[in-house]
Amino acid sequence: MSTTTGTQRITLAKAINLGLRRALESDPKVLLMGEDIGALGGVFRVTDGLYKDFGADRVVDTPLAESGIVGTAIGLALRGYRSVCEIQFDGFIYPAFDQITTQLSRMHYRSQGRLSLPVVIRVPYGGGIGAIEHHSESPEVLFAHTAGLRVVSPSTPADAYVMIQQAVASPDPVLFFEPKGRYWDKGDVDLDAPLVDASTGETGLDRAVVVRPGTDLTLVGYGPTVGTCLKVADAAAAEGTSIEVVDLRTLSPLDAATVAESVRRTGRCVVVHEAPVLYGTGAEVAARITEECFYHLQAPVLRVGGFHVPYPVSKLEHEYLPSLDRILDAVDRSLAY
């Protein structure tokens, strides 16, 4: 159980693994729960090695029942434990939907703040991996629509490492959406990164960040689409368009202020996500941006995302997902106003 330090170039999956290891080391009340997370290390190997090092009491291979996983995590939380639940794939969170929405989200509220449920639910989500049905979905908005839950999604290994630890430390329940298509993307991670900013005392878990500055248009993404947005910015730069990319990082709370600050400078905004656009994050961002900086807008806020169809068969998923071309098309349409 050696604690690694310094900066390392690791995958997003490994970053979460190391973040979970840190959380297990620093708080004996932290537990991991889920299907196949023990000896197997999870189907994506995110918990690889943790069962061996922390044992079956702290890294728990649960029975195959998502409602049971979340429901018992709630009970454990009432008893002072901090469970990090792994839902094997996005499409299998629904058996737990009742526990999450009717119990987990509102215990703090119902008890007038006397009870808190610091439960983290990790959900590998998103498509592009050629999977069969129910393995490529983006249900994050269902949870963002539910008061009492935090909903976050990292896009880089560095963020993933810090954000998972902040999620575990959070007194609120957190839905932690992991972009599974980016699990094997590598990035530099400062393993000694602080979880709280020493000067402000804040975690930043509720903040969006500008990941690439630009002047002509604000491109907003999160999780799996941030990387695509950065590629779009590169392609647009080659044609003389300067795109600013904002990584939302959190859907609940939504940091509309950071987006608005950017749009006041650029005058244009395109929001990108894999989830369907209908009633999606893009709709919320568009409404808020319209309200907050109407007179700065030179074009309507546009959205690029999934269609109002069930996630299609994998041979068609690249047409469904917001591709470089589809985002560039929206950028062109915005600039043409």
Binding site: F307, H308, V309, L316, E319
Partner: peptide, 22 residues
């Protein structure tokens, strides 16, 4: 390979303004 437009078929039994527009 299925046609890309097949993705929009059979979501509902009949016409649907959103699906049809998309």
């Amino acid at each position: 390979r299925p046609s890309t437009s097949s993705m929009f078929v059979h979501v509902y039994a009949g016409p649907n303004a959103i699906v049809d527009a998309e």
